[in-house]
């Protein structure tokens, strides 16, 4: 019982985790190949009205990001100084910023930046974490020990501190921000995946597979990875929102994405505070955009977790 609770702690913020075997076995059954992806989705929709709402937000964001060029014909980086700080109205639906750039356009293109950073960090971070975690559990011994000590070290840093230090080293910019956010994600995911994988490692058929002479890669890919998909997906979805928030914070500190790129955190930084009173729309829309996006991803992530983790399913 406690095991699953502590895994939950990991999802939220940090990780110091041991997951009990009971939970893993249940997940093991639960995620046997018989459960189809569509089945999971329909289960989620029925059981998770909030989660479905989150999914709607996420889909809307993805839509904005993908079809930005179609949704708006304006260049998000184009200055129109004669229209600087225009209030929302017919001409500019959400108003303009201090360079006369259309805020609606910048919000739409900002979704692209946010999703790009969010997905890249979450996918790379959790995938590398998956590989490390499973390998660490499978090989054990010295390899496991070293990996775990490294994971200990990185997880001892608060996220923002480590990210800031990495950005200071590499310099600001989208690519470097992605690296800075991804690095702290890897050990978080590795730790959770490892504790689940450890239990699977103990199951006799893995030994049987080894006895049959299957290669390590095959055993890991065919037998271990599919069985830790649940914690992996939980981590991945929780990273999405975190990455977007972290990118916004870094940009706000001037260490993130740089002008003239359209990015929500940057929009809050570049003068939004100075103009927040006389032109409140400059500070309001990007803030709402960030909140809504993270809100959506969190609702969605919760639903994914509840669906995948039988312990948390309602009675």
């Amino acid at each position: 019982m406690r095991g699953s609770i502590r895994a939950f702690v990991t999802v939220e913020d940090t990780g110091m985790v041991t997951v009990s075997e009971i939970q893993v076995e249940e997940q093991f059954e639960d995620l046997s190949p018989k459960t189809t992806f569509m089945g999971m989705i329909s289960l989620m929709l029925r059981k998770q009205p909030l989660g479905s709402f989150g999914a709607v937000i996420v889909i809307a964001m993805v839509f904005m990001a993908v079809f930005a060029e179609i949704l708006t014909s304006i260049d998000p980086e184009d200055n129109n100084l004669e229209y600087m700080l225009t209030a929302p109205g017919e001409m500019f639906f959400l108003g303009t910023d201090q360079f006369g750039r259309d805020l609606l356009t910048r919000i739409i293109y900002g979704a692209r930046t946010a999703l790009f950073v969010g997905f890249t960090c979450a996918i790379i971070g959790s995938s590398l974490g998956l590989v490390l975690g499973v390998a660490s559990a499978y090989f054990g011994g010295m390899f496991d020990l070293i990996i775990q000590r490294v994971v200990d070290v990185i997880m001892a840093f608060p996220l923002i501190i480590l990210a800031l230090a990495v950005v200071a080293t590499l310099g600001p910019g989208v690519e470097n921000v992605i690296i800075a956010i991804t690095i702290p994600f890897i050990p978080q995911c590795a730790r959770v995946v490892r504790s689940n994988a450890l239990a699977i490692r103990e199951i006799p058929y893995i030994d049987a597979a080894r006895a049959l002479g299957f290669s390590h890669v095959r055993i890991i890919m065919r037998h271990m990875v599919p069985n830790v998909m649940a914690p992996f997906l939980i981590m991945l979805t929780s990273f999405l929102g975190q990455a977007i928030l972290l990118e916004a914070s870094l940009s706000y500190l001037g260490m993130g994405v740089q002008e003239p790129t359209a990015a929500w955190g940057l929009m809050l930084q570049g003068g939004a505070e100075e103009y927040a009173e006389s032109a409140p729309w400059v500070a309001v829309w990007p803030g709402i955009a960030i909140s809504l996006a993270v809100f959506g991803f969190n609702l969605f992530g919760d639903a994914v977790r509840d669906t995948l983790d039988p312990k948390l399913r309602s009675q």
């Binding site: 809050l268 809100f295 969190n298």
Partner: peptide, 18 residues
Amino acid sequence: RWFAIAGIAMPSFWLGIL
């Protein structure tokens, strides 16, 4: 839950500015 997730979603610096 709505209130709670909103708290996680809202950047605290933005809340501070407001």
